[in-house]
């Protein structure tokens, strides 16, 4: 039985569909990445799963509980951990007292072990916390009652790279211990690093369900190149570049090929400086999944078929 089963889930706000007939499953013992640009509808899905908002149509099951059945959903929450994107803690309380408060509602058998990995300043009031400390306290409260399923909304936002790595390693260990992790992110590389399977959402619609191997081939980097002399756009362009912009001697583009190939290519130019960073997710999605791509329902349920659906889109939608 899937840990999360999302079935034709739709949430409308007036004319806007924040979630539009979203359908997919999350299996036990996997790290499932829910990838999409900001505002795509990731948080809406998560808040629907937790029963904070009600679906316009369709439904979902969390650990076997229908999200429309409030009583059943409340009951399974003792086995669910949740890390929201915005952490609304009691600002005047210390971290320790906040954890005490949550412990009274659902237990804290793993608290000490987690506090060795993630160390927010427990004796300071939360209003003095940095965003990284807030996030760490959030991670501790999400896992401290040893839940079967943990739902995390942008878990690494605010964490420094070292802590991000620590979290990713921790998530992998949890997965290996049989836990299920559902995490949303707008950072492609994060999902590529840590997830087993990925659902991609754009404008409220699920556009693809991918095994991570497929997604690994679909990476991209935002590249800025500063050259010694102005360059001709046509001479510089390769097939792997999208959204190429040339301004005098500065070139910006999203590169969808391999890093090695790009570096070898750039050596042929008189390069003054190079910056390579995370891509704009939306550019990458447009490239791989086209502008109006959606997963048809059958393939979304099985997941495996969706991979081939995704491959088709590369051919049809690739720019």
């Amino acid at each position: 039985m899937p840990v999360i089963r999302i079935d034709d889930l739709t949430k409308r706000y007036g004319d806007v569909a924040a979630n539009d007939h979203v359908t997919f499953d999350v299996e036990a013992g996997e790290i499932f990445g829910y990838l999409g640009p900001n505002g795509a509808g990731k948080t809406t899905t998560i808040r629907l799963l937790l029963g904070l908002i009600k679906p316009t149509s369709g439904t979902a099951e969390v650990l076997g509980a229908d999200i429309r059945d409030r009583r059943a959903l409340t009951e399974v929450k003792s086995d669910v951990g949740y890390l929201p994107d915005t952490l609304g803690f009691e600002e005047r309380l210390t971290g320790r007292r906040v954890l005490d408060h949550f412990a009274r509602m659902r237990g804290d058998e793993r608290r000490e072990e987690l506090l060795e990995l993630f160390r927010p300043p427990l004796d300071k009031p939360i209003e003095t916390y940095s965003s990284g400390n807030r996030r760490m306290l959030g991670i501790v409260q999400a896992f401290m009652h040893d839940p079967q399923l943990v739902i995390m909304d942008e878990p690494t936002s605010g964490l420094d790279p070292l802590k991000q790595d620590r979290l990713h390693l921790f998530l992998e260990k949890e997965r290996d211990a049989g836990k299920t992790i559902f995490l949303s992110s707008h950072v492609l590389s994060e999902v590529q690093r840590v997830c087993d399977r990925v659902g991609i959402i754009r404008d409220g619609e699920l556009v693809a369900l991918e095994e991570i191997e497929t997604l690994l081939g679909r990476s991209g980097k935002r590249v800025w190149v500063h050259l010694a002399e102005p360059v001709d756009e046509e001479r510089f362009r390769t097939d792997e570049m999208i959204d190429l912009e040339v301004t005098d001697a500065t070139v910006q583009f999203t590169y969808t090929g391999e890093a090695k190939t790009l570096l070898e290519y750039l050596v042929g130019f008189d390069v003054v400086d190079v910056e390579i960073g995370e891509p704009q997710l939306d550019d990458i999605f447009k490239h791989y999944y086209g502008d109006d791509a959606t997963v048809d329902e059958e393939s979304a349920v099985t997941g495996k078929d969706a991979v081939s659906t995704g491959e088709d889109r590369v051919r049809t939608g690739g720019g």
């Binding site: 904070l52 951990g81 915005t86 952490l87 609304g88 803690f89």
Partner: peptide
């Protein structure tokens, strides 16, 4: 609590 999203965390507990 709704406004500051405290309610999100509160309702993630097994409490109606």
């Amino acid at each position: 609590d709704v406004r500051t999203r405290k309610m999100d965390l509160t309702l993630s507990n097994p409490v109606s």
